[in-house]
């Protein structure tokens, strides 16, 4: 029964992920900005991760099973996602020279997991690759009033918080919230309701109130 419950969560992640892909693709077609391609690829990575998770539930594969030494199947999936996440962060900051770092780091950590059963390196890596892009995206998104960037920042932040809570159901809920926040970002929610232009708002309010005053 818990498998069905998790499959529903993963299904929601896939649904919001796919729904987010459409506006991102449309934006890319309009502007030809390569950043949208990066977001698109990252989003596909997230959907792929959830899809594999659903498959593991259907095929009843235990992701907590140790494959070699202390390396679990779930860790491999996690490292793949972190590599994409880290790569995305480097792309955002324009650090071309460091593009090979995520692959090598993930590889060493995976080998480390074979030799050592400690979960700490995995958690530290998850925190670094989740919170760092979250900080940059939230900061830049807020400064430039870019809802997509802000949404991605919230996504990384919520996803990161979920990763460090070792209770699977809580982790899943956080992941669903994260993808939903990203989905809102792609739909222009934050521009509309959070980054409201104060001056414009005052002007509208002023006109609105003055209309009432005139009427009275």
């Amino acid at each position: 029964m818990p498998d069905l419950q998790y499959s529903i969560f993963e299904g929601l992640i896939i649904l919001f992920g796919v729904l987010s892909l459409i506006p991102v693709f449309r934006n890319w077609k309009e502007s030809k900005n390569r950043m949208y391609i990066a977001i698109f690829v990252y989003n596909i990575g997230v959907i792929g991760y959830s899809f594999i998770n659903v498959l593991t539930y259907i095929l009843e594969i235990d992701t907590n099973v140790y494959l070699v030494g202390g390396l679990r199947f779930g860790y491999i999936l996690g490292y793949i996602l972190f590599t994409i996440q880290f790569e995305f962060m480097l792309y955002l900051r324009g650090l071309t020279k460091l593009y090979t770092l995520p692959f090598i780091l993930s590889f060493y950590l995976m080998i480390g997991n074979i030799l050592n059963t400690s979960v700490m390196p995995f958690i530290i890596y998850a925190v670094i690759v989740s919170y760092t892009p979250a900080y940059f995206l939230l900061r830049d998104g807020k400064k430039k009033r870019n809802g997509l960037a802000f949404g991605m920042g919230l996504f990384f932040l919520t996803w990161g918080i979920g990763q460090i809570i070792p209770v699977e159901i809580v982790m899943e809920i956080f992941r669903v919230i994260a993808i939903f926040m990203f989905f809102l970002g792609t739909r222009g929610f934050y521009e509309k309701y959070i980054f409201v232009n104060q001056e414009e708002e005052q002007k509208i309010m002023g006109t609105w109130i003055s209309k009432f005053v005139v009427k009275e």
Binding site: T96, K97, L98, T100, I104, L105, Y108, I111, G112, L115
Partner: peptide, 24 residues
């Protein structure tokens, strides 16, 4: 080949750090 500038240092540096952490 810009993306590969530091790859050798990442591999070798990782190997040295890895040795001091795990003995491998």
């Amino acid at each position: 080949w810009e993306p590969l500038y530091f790859v050798s240092f990442f591999i070798f540096g990782g190997m040295v750090i890895f040795y001091y952490l795990t003995g491998f």
